[in-house]
Amino acid sequence: MLIESVNIFLLALLAVTAIAAVRLRDLFAVAMMFGIYSLLAAVMFVLLDAVDVAFTEAAVGVGISTVLMLGTIGLVGRYERGSVRSSLLPLTVVVATGATLIYGTLDMPHFGDPTAPVHQHVAPAYITESPQQTGIPNVVTSILASYRGYDTLGELAVIFTAGVGVLALLGLRRRKRPGKEGVGQ
């Protein structure tokens, strides 16, 4: 009961943060609101027992994405110009999409339902057998690094290639014109 109340309160704070982020015209403040949003979302993920997602949310949402957003703001200026077009059509589209998504979740198993298909076969197998099969105490780590080891290796190769590509593009320009590069290189 207590945990549910905490969840509801956090959800309310999330909604307030999101509305504030939409309404504010100062983009720096909006970036800070997004950081706060990530913090609150991370607590909710922790409460939902999704620890690794919470880690990612905190590291990416609070850390790097705030920095990247501020870097962009440094390049484009801090204040948003008011839109001249009507926001009626986008609002309709967003509301319709949201309603469809909520309708879609109605068919999904109830949150925490022990008879849900996912809890019948795969999850218990990994939870009970992964310590013996891999010898790693953390289930998430054992899945990422052992069962899906080649998959993870492939992902890392892709990310590494992307990083090298970005560095090659930015680094070449920097050497030609020192002191002229962008902010979030």
């Binding site: 720096f28 950081g35 609070v62 850390g63 705030t66 501020l70 870097g71 440094g74 902010v183 979030g184």
Partner: peptide, 16 residues
Amino acid sequence: GTVAVLKISEFGNLGQ
């Protein structure tokens, strides 16, 4: 995160 944000708000970049 906080120190990175402050560095940007003070110097306008990440130290370059």
